[in-house]
Amino acid sequence: MKKGLMAVAAVAALALVTGTAAPVTAADKTLKIYLISKGETHQFWQAVKLGAETQAKKMNAEIVFQGPAAETMIDKQLEMLDAAIAVKPDAIGYAALGTTQSVPNLKAANDAGIPVYMFDTAASCPGKLGVASDCALGVAYTNSTAAGALAADKMSALLKGKGKVLVVGHSQTNQTGIDRANGFINQIKKKHKGIKLLKTQYAEGGDALKAQEIISAALVANKDLKGIYGTNEGVSIGAGQAFKAAKLKNGAVKLIGFDSGKQQIANIKSGLQTGAITQSPMGIGAKTVEALVNYVRNKTVPKPLIDTGFYYYDAKNISDPTVAGNLYE
């Protein structure tokens, strides 16, 4: 009886082992995925890479991560994309530098039967993204409008729903810059009517010095200014320095910034800055790989738009693993 039981157990165990090992078919071979990013060395892209590699390990895929030295090198990036297509990997992830220039290259990838999913920035693909598109299945990116709205909710909570707030944008022409500012402004207008918005100002290009000068003037002109929202790292740095120059007490004017970087992180830890929104570069990498692997292996059609998420962080949660992994110095 005992022997019989053991035999059953042994057979069951064997079945278990063979069961997992048996279907060594195409569906479970290690997939090779090329990710052509906008850069390689910057910590943001390093975090994208880390997120992609972590996800790839979970799903039995292998990542080749490439990007040009600078975000201006569109031609260099397109060469990398063409080289990747020539290798015929199982799938390609692409972050568009040349949003229009890359469209023919992406079509070439589709013609070669390589599925493409975009990340961070979409190319100007003609028509709708999806399986029918000969450009890309979709794009995983940070929903900047929603991120701006989260900043608005946090600001309103900090000010208990009322007070004067100034938005300092970093660009009037770049879509991310516009979305981050408008997301905040529209959310305030819709949901937080007690907050009075001053005219939005722009430190074009995220010029920290211009931001500082704009905010110094705003502090003089509005003694009752209660909050500032800056849409990128440079603006946040400038705002902190303006507070220092005006010898404001920490927290007298709330400051919500964007992204991270050494100085902004230090300011949040010291209390000079209240908090900031960070994108989730790790999420961008992970979601892109997940979408591609599921499509190649299971023919699961990914959503044409995947929001990769963002977080509000302040002195309290800055060291939480979910936040800390997405911050860079």
């Binding site: 290009g205 995220g206 010029d207 920290a208 010095l209 500082q212 440079g234 740095i237 400038g238 902190g240 320095q241 220092k244 120059a245 050494k262 100085q263």
Partner: peptide
């Protein structure tokens, strides 16, 4: 002066 005003050196400014 600008590094003192900003507390840092900003390479793109």
């Amino acid at each position: 002066v600008i590094t003192s005003r900003l507390g840092s050196a900003q390479p793109d400014l």
